[in-house]
Structure formats: C-alpha cells, structure tokens
Write a protein that binds this DNA or RNA. Structure first.
Length: 200
DNA sequence: CGGCCGATCCACT
DNA sequence: GTGGATCGGCCGA
C-alpha cells in the first residue's frame, strides 16, 4: 500500500542544516503510535545551526542531558518539552558531535485524520497542524519519544512521498519565538510552503 | 536551592 | 488581544 522510500542516513548527516530544512518541505512525516498510523506532509521547518547559533539550545557548546540528543549522529528525533506543555519535534542532522537540528513546525495531514481529531479533542481542519506543539499532538508523540531513530524506528520516520515543492512556493523568514537570540533572531532560517502542494 | 522563563496553544474578553 | 496552563533546564546566590 505504501511504496514510499524512507529517508536514509545520508540525507540527515549532510553538513548544511539549511539545505536539509529546505528539502524536508514536502517530505512525509509518519508515525505509528498507539497502534495508529498517522501522517502529514511537512509544510514548515526551522534550522538550528549548532553551537554558533544563539537560538539553539546547544549555543556555546552547551552539552547537557537534554541537548545531548542533538550531539548524536543525524537521523534521530530530538523532542523536548516547551512551556511545560508542548512537545516539540526536531530532526537531528549532521554527524555525531555537531549539534544541528531542524524543528518541524507544520504538517498537512494526509492519513489518519480521524485519529488526529481524537487526539486533539475536536475535528481537524484542512490546515490543521500549523504550530510545532500541534504537530506532535496530532502524531501522538511526546518528549518520551526523544532519540527515536528515524531511520530504523517503527514508531516515527520520514519518507519521500514524491511531493515537489518548487522554490517559488517556498517562503523564507526569520524564526519564531527566538527574540532572546539577539542578531541571530533575524537569520532567514524558517522555511514554509506558500501555496499549493504539488503531488507527482 | 529558589526562581525565572521558554523553539506554544487555546479559551475567553 | 491577552493570560493561564504547567514543568524542566539553567543561572545566580
């Protein structure tokens, strides 16, 4: 039923986190959580550029129990709790020792919409999934799923679903909610789909 | 050890 | 437009 190809390690371990954040647009994020399959096309991402990026948890090479996940090799999930309530899903990139990550901020639901509705407590709209806290809620993921292996896990992974997002439908802006990051708050590290998703 | 605050969302005014 | 929910990480004393 589903012949889509899961993204492999070579996709995640590349050095340019901005390129990966851009290329994740249109990819299909799938979760098989609580025995339920849900999936969405990624529509919004943000890049976090490691120890030199003031907006990153790993700024200044701050390696703690929490940020240690980002120091692992690319291809795993970094999920942490924000505002005490929301679990935020990131994709760890680059090689082991370099704490790069891409925050998944938005998805367009394509499978398991009824499951998603139940998880969120009401019917989802077509544009549901905007906002990183909502992404994890729809997919049934929490910070307990931190470090899940996107390449080998049967709980959460990302695959190429033959969705093409042309450059003229990609909007690039500064990141959200990172005012504390000084001049780095202005960097154009946020990528979002503007307009139609084109399925081949 | 205490206190502040964050890569947010939603209900309510 | 705004404030409440809710908790772990981090910093300063």
């Amino acid at each position: 039923m589903n012949a889509y190809k899961r993204l492999q390690e070579t996709f995640y371990t590349r050095g340019d986190v901005l390129t990966i954040a851009r290329e994740l647009l249109g990819k299909q994020l799938v979760s098989f959580s609580e025995g339920q399959l849900t999936a969405g096309i990624i529509t919004e991402t943000e890049a976090y550029n490691g120890i030199i990026d003031k907006a990153s948890h790993a700024y200044g090479d701050r390696r703690t129990k929490r940020t240690d996940t980002m120091y692992q090799g690319g291809g795993i999930a970094y999920i942490y709790l924000c505002y005490g309530i929301h679990s935020l899903l990131n994709v760890v990139t680059n090689i082991s020792g370099i704490p790069h990550a891409v925050l998944i901020r938005g998805i367009y639901p394509v499978a398991g919409q009824e499951i998603m509705s139940r998880r969120i407590g009401r019917k989802i709209s077509a544009k549901e999934g905007i906002g990183p806290g909502k992404v994890t809620k729809l997919l049934g993921l929490t910070y307990a799923d931190d470090r899940e292996d996107l390449i080998r896990s049967n709980k959460v992974w990302i695959e190429d679903a033959d969705v093409l997002i042309p450059d003229n439908h990609v909007m690039i802006t500064p990141r959200i909610g990172v005012g504390y990051a000084g001049e780095d708050a202005l960097l154009p590290y946020r990528f979002m789909v503007d307009g139609k998703i084109i399925k081949l």
